[in-house]
Each structure stands twice: as structure tokens, then as C-alpha cells.
Design a protein around this nucleic acid. Structure first.
Length: 585
RNA sequence: GGUCUCGUGGUGAAGUUGGAGUUCACGCCGGCCUGUCAAGCCGGAGGUCGCGGGUUCGAGUCCCGUCGGGACCGCCA
């Protein structure tokens, strides 16, 4: 026996799908009472809700049904009397009359309105009663959007020959990376599994294992502080491919992302453009540029090559942004706040100039700038009367970073506001910064990432300038995910470990179980993973991934509905060989 | 770990230089009502102002601490 998408033995129609074409039919609908309006002994209106929408049922007022009662209503679809059509309701041209009402279950009054008004309710209360919150249109839509994305991604991956393989949730703890959740072993007290931060190790081993193209919609867990775009557990499209170069991986993932976006918006996004990490930093000051607005960083270093102004003289990099028409709006307080922000990020200072109505510059520092410098500044930034100009002179990375942050602060629209601008950022540096303790370079992505073939000659002489075959996918300034071509040759891996200051002993100790399989014939391979929660949130028009997760945790990592995490029973702890320390005072 | 911010009947808010748990809307309970639709009218119930101290004749309001929510920084190879 098969069952239809909607019809069951208890109902013939969905509430929100009843329309004029059903007029005259006897229908049975099931759902929750959204609203009851009483009009004397014999007449009452009941708005019945299921996930598809709301339909008005005309009932005998003697029937006692109240908010959120679960009922089954059988009646005849009929057009509404003239003048009583409700244009705000998809079913507003019809109603169900001659109703027989069966109460399947009574209900307590809900703690908050089960409609858009609950958008203003304290999120903690919504989470405490999440099963009611999810009855609302917004949550129904978001969770169904999520399902559409998952489905589109699966279809796209499978159509490209990827094989879904499930990897374990109980894995060994790995020394690098994010803090892990640990799971105690009962059979071996004192030993622990970790919950996976990602299936990284396993998917690369699947390449050694000849799976060729692997994907998984994988749950990943990281015990790091939560944010609007971060939860302890989150879902990724995780993929890995053999015998590929970077373009192959980008093409495969682009196909999946574009399919996901199209499944939700109905519009197929343009091919995803690419920029290098260097260019992203030069133009936008961040490695996850938001391409929806301009205000790009303008290169000014050469203008001030022989300047008298001490703050600019000898600076490695001088850049500026033009904040269009904001000169008047930014008084002393706001400018001081911007300067503070820049200094907190480590900049020596922030220079601001305003363009007056006569086109001249106004600023405390203008007297230090030559007429030539001033005019070049105005022309380079294409400054016009009423503009505010912000300039930073510092080391290249600091200059970019500070202005990039100010650009986002001053110009960035909410993340979900269209248009959707996807971009691949490629050629990330292989090493980023230096470990404070060891003085050795730190991996930009992870230590198994393939260096850029054009930079191999600089590997030992100038490691910090070596690019990698690592890439990020960015949407509207949100990092969706990242990936790389991996190292598959032990010689190259040794060079990278050496540059990182990891000895052969240490490498074998930390990564042995991972490195050994590579000696048995590892194909060239690369992969990618991107966060589905973030993609769904943006496509659903939400600013917070909690809105697209059925049962999320609060910022402190708790679930107000289940009260997790809870204290373990002594009996359980005994069995696991665990003793809990008294709370720190 | 840090910065900022919020906490007042079930929900959302207002609450003035510190002066009685005061107010508004929704919801809830009861009554009226035959065309409403986030119905309308009448009546009613419902709060340890997150919690604990302090200042004061007097604290929702001021101070200190604490708990909880949120945003951000650190962190997230």
C-alpha cells in the first residue's frame, strides 16, 4: 500500500490548500485551532491550522474548541458570502460549512501567540516551548527550506558521481584544531572518544580507499563559544574527490551550492566568481569579502612616498575608504569611536578627512599634507563634497584589516538582504602568523594542505609568502566553508612539517594513524566542506542560524526545553570511572 | 576569559528627581452577540518587578554581587 503526500485515513485535504476548485466537495481536515470567533449560540468561526496554512470553518457555537485544540473537521467547501472574502488568507475565498467537529485532543492555552507576533517573544521562551514555536509559519518555512537545501545538495552531488559514506561519530581525539567534546569509554575507564569536529581524516582515507568521490551531509561538533552563526553541532556538506585539481573541486561544489540556492529562491545564481586572497585583502580588507556594496579600499601608499606627515611617512601600506556623503553625520564623538575601534584592533591611529562643499579637505591633519598630496588623495578616492575619508597607515595586513572592518561596520547590509553574492576566495597563504610559544609558522588552513606549485622555490627562503591550494566559499560576507587540495606525497608532507617545526617523531605520534595509510598509495585528492546552517539561514532570510535549527542551544550551550546539559548520576559516573571535581570557587 | 546590553502577571511593553504592584495592549476565565477573520461589547482572575545583599523613613527605580537571555571580541587548524 502506498500513501499520498497529504491524504491519510484521517484527512482528505490540507488546510492551506483548499480553494475554489474544491467548492461543493465534502472534505476532512485535521489541525490545530488557531483562532475561534464566537457570534451567538449557533455560529462560530474556527481558523484551523496545519503546516500548509489556515482555513476558516463555520461551526455550531455549542462546540467547545479552544486555542491549539487538536481537531478533525469534516464539512462542505463553499464560497464565502459576498463581502466576506479575506484577501489576507490563501484560502480566503472559501470556507468549510456544515461542520462536524471531533476534538482529538484538548490543549492548555499556549504560552505565546502561535503566529508572527511570537517573533517578538523572548527567544528563551520560544526555545523552552520549541514544539509550539515550530507550529508557526516562520519556523515551518525555515525547516522546510532546510530540507529543500539538503535534498538539492544530495541530488547535485549524486548526479556528479559522489557516493554518500557515513563516517563515525566516536573518533579519536586529535591534538590540533577546535576544542572537542569528549565521550568517556565504559570498557576502558580513563580513555575517551572525541566527537568529530569534521570527518576530515576519514574522508581523506576514503580517497586512499578508492571511493573516488565521497560526500556526506555530516554533523560536526566543536566545543567553542556559540554565536549567531555558530552552534556546538552543525551540519556540513562534506566532500572529497580523487584525481582532481582545484578547478574540479570548485566546479563540483559550485554546482551543489547553485542547486541549493535555486531550489529555495527559484532563481539560478550566476556562476560563482573567484578572487585571490591577496586581492580580497587589498580591495576589501577581509578574507570573506561582502561584494554587495562598494566602498573598496583604495591604495594610497605612493601618494605619500615623500610626505612630511609623520603618521604616514615610511608606512608600509597606506589605504583609504570613501564613506559617501557621511561627512556631516560623523561628528566628533562618532569619529572618536571609529578611531578607538581602529586602535583596539592594533592600528596606530585613524586619519579622517571631510570634503567640504568647496571641495577642500577639512581635518586636524590637513595642515601636514602638501597641496599635491591633497589633490591626489581626492582624485584617487574620487572624493566629492560631503564625503568622509578614512585613512590608515600601517603594516600591510593591519591597514587592510582595520579598513576592512570599518568598511563592514559602515556599509554592510544585513546578511540576508539581496542580492546574493557568492565568491570563491583562492590562494590562501599556506602559513598565517607565528606561534607565540614555538616561534614557528602556523598553518593557515591545516597542515595537510598542498602548497601552491608556483611558490615551491620560496618554501624554505620565505615561507610566509607561500600560497596554498586552499579556498573559501563566501556568501554576502559570511564564510560558508573551506577546502583545499591535500598533500598526498610523504616528501611534501615532510617539508610542510619541517616548516611548521614538527619533527618526524612528533608527526608520527600526532598524525601517524593518518600518515601511514598514505604510504599505501594515496591518490592526488582535494575536497571541501560548507556549513548548511549558514547557507540555509541566508536563503531563509534569517540573521541567526538558530532560526533554521529545530532544537538549537542558547549562547551558553544549554537547551531550555530539555535542560541539557544535566548532571550525571553517580551510578553512571562510577561505571565510567569518572569523579567530578567540586565547582571552582 | 573580556566588552556592551536586556530581565516588570502567560506574552509584549510603559513606569517621571526614589513615594502604595500603578498603567496599556494581547492572551486567559465568565457573560452577551448569526458573518467574523490578529472580531466586537460587558465583567473577572492573574505579578516575590530574575535572585541576594546594601543605601534610604521609603527601592521596580540608586549601589554592590549573583543568575539567566542576547550581540560582539578572544576562540572556532
Amino acid at each position: 500500500m502506498t500513501i499520498s503526500k497529504r491524504q491519510t485515513s484521517m484527512r482528505t485535504h490540507m488546510c492551506g490548500e483548499i480553494g475554489t476548485s474544491d467548492i461543493g466537495q465534502t472534505v476532512t481536515v485535521c489541525g490545530w485551532v488557531a483562532k475561534r470567533r464566537e457570534h451567538g449560540d449557533k455560529l462560530a468561526f474556527v481558523d484551523l491550522r496545519d503546516y500548509s496554512g489556515i482555513v476558516q470553518c463555520v461551526i455550531d457555537n455549542a462546540v467547545d474548541v479552544r486555542s491549539e485544540y487538536v481537531v478533525k473537521i469534516t464539512g462542505v467547501v463553499r464560497p464565502r458570502p459576498e463581502g466576506t472574502v479575506n484577501v489576507n488568507l490563501s484560502t480566503g475565498e472559501v470556507e468549510i460549512g456544515e461542520c462536524v467537529v471531533e476534538v482529538l485532543r484538548s490543549a492548555e492555552p499556549p504560552p505565546f501567540p502561535v503566529d508572527a507576533r511570537a517573533d517578538d517573544v523572548d527567544e528563551n521562551v520560544r526555545l523552552q516551548y520549541r514544539y509550539i514555536d515550530i507550529r508557526r509559519e516562520r519556523m515551518q518555512k525555515n525547516l522546510r527550506t532546510r530540507a529543500k537545501v539538503n535534498s538539492a545538495v544530495r541530488t547535485a552531488m549524486e548526479s556528479q558521481g559522489f557516493v554518500e559514506v557515513e563516517t563515525p561519530m566516536l573518533v579519536p581525539s586529535t591534538p590540533e584544531g577546535a576544542r572537542e567534546f569528549l565521550v568517556p569509554s565504559r570498557k576502558e575507564p580513563g580513555s575517551f572518544y572525541a566527537l568529530p569536529q569534521s570527518p576530515q581524516l576519514f574522508k581523506q582515507l576514503l580517497m586512499v580507499a578508492g571511493i573516488d568521490r565521497y560526500y556526506q551531509i555530516a554533523r560536526c561538533l566543536r566545543d567553542e563559544d556559540l554565536r549567531a552563526d555558530r552552534q556546538y553541532e552543525f551540519m556540513q556538506l562534506d566532500a572529497e574527490m580523487s584525481f582532481v585539481n582545484q578547478d574540479d573541486v570548485l566546479a563540483a561544489i559550485s554546482t551543489a551550492v547553485i542547486a541549493a540556492a535555486e531550489s529555495v529562491t527559484g532563481v539560478k545564481p550566476d556562476p560563482i566568481q573567484q578572487i585571490t586572497w591577496r586581492e580580497a585583502m587589498e580591495r576589501f580588507g577581509v578574507d570573506k569579502p561582502d561584494l554587495r556594496f562598494g566602498m573598496e579600499l583604495t591604495e594610497l601608499t605612493s601618494i605619500f612616498s615623500s610626505t612630511e606627515f609623520k603618521a604616514f611617512a615610511g608606512a608600509e601600506s597606506i589605504k583609504g575608504i570613501r564613506v559617501e556623503g557621511k561627512a556631516e553625520e560623523f561628528g566628533r564623538n562618532k569619529l572618536d569611536a571609529l578611531t578607538d575601534r581602529a586602535k583596539k584592533m592594533g592600528a596606530k591611529g585613524l586619519v579622517w578627512l571631510k570634503v567640504a562643499t568647496d571641495g577642500t579637505l577639512e581635518s586636524p591633519v590637513v595642515k601636514f599634507l602638501s597641496a599635491d598630496e591633497q589633490s591626489q588623495l581626492i582624485s584617487s578616492l574620487q572624493a566629492k563634497a560631503g564625503d568622509l575619508l578614512l585613512i590608515v597607515a600601517d603594516e600591510w595586513s593591519m591597514t587592510c584589516e582595520v579598513l576592512g572592518t570599518l568598511r563592514n561596520d559602515l556599509g554592510r547590509p544585513p546578511v540576508h538582504q539581496g542580492p546574493y553574492r557568492y565568491v570563491w576566495v583562492t590562494e590562501f597563504p599556506l602559513f598565517v602568523g607565528v606561534d607565540k610559544e614555538t616561534g614557528q609558522p602556523k598553518p593557515g588552513h591545516h597542515p595537510f594542505c598542498q602548497p601552491h606549485p608556483d611558490d615551491l622555490d620560496k618554501f624554505e627562503s620565505d615561507p610566509m609568502s607561500v600560497r596554498s591550494l586552499a579556498y573559501d566559499l563566501v556568501l554576502n560576507g559570511w564564510e560558508l566553508g573551506s577546502g583545499s587540495i591535500r598533500i598526498h606525497e610523504p616528501e611534501m608532507q615532510r617539508r610542510v612539517f619541517t616548516a611548521l617545526g614538527i619533527s618526524e617523531d612528533e608527526a608520527n605520534r600526532k598524525f601517524g594513524f593518518f600518515l601511514k595509510p598514505f604510504t599505501y598509495g594515496a591518490p592526488p585528492h582535494g575536497g571541501f566542506a560548507f556549513g548548511l546552517d549558514r547557507l540555509v539561514a541566508i536563503l531563509a532570510g534569517e540573521e541567526n542560524i538558530r532560526e533554521v535549527i529545530a532544537f538549537p542551544k542558547t549562547q551558553s550551550g544549554q537547551d531550555p526545553m530539555t535542560n541539557a546539559p544535566t548532571r550525571a548520576e553517580n551510578k553512571q559516573l562510577d561505571e565510567l570511572g569518572i569523579r567530578v571535581l567540586p565547582p571552582k570557587v
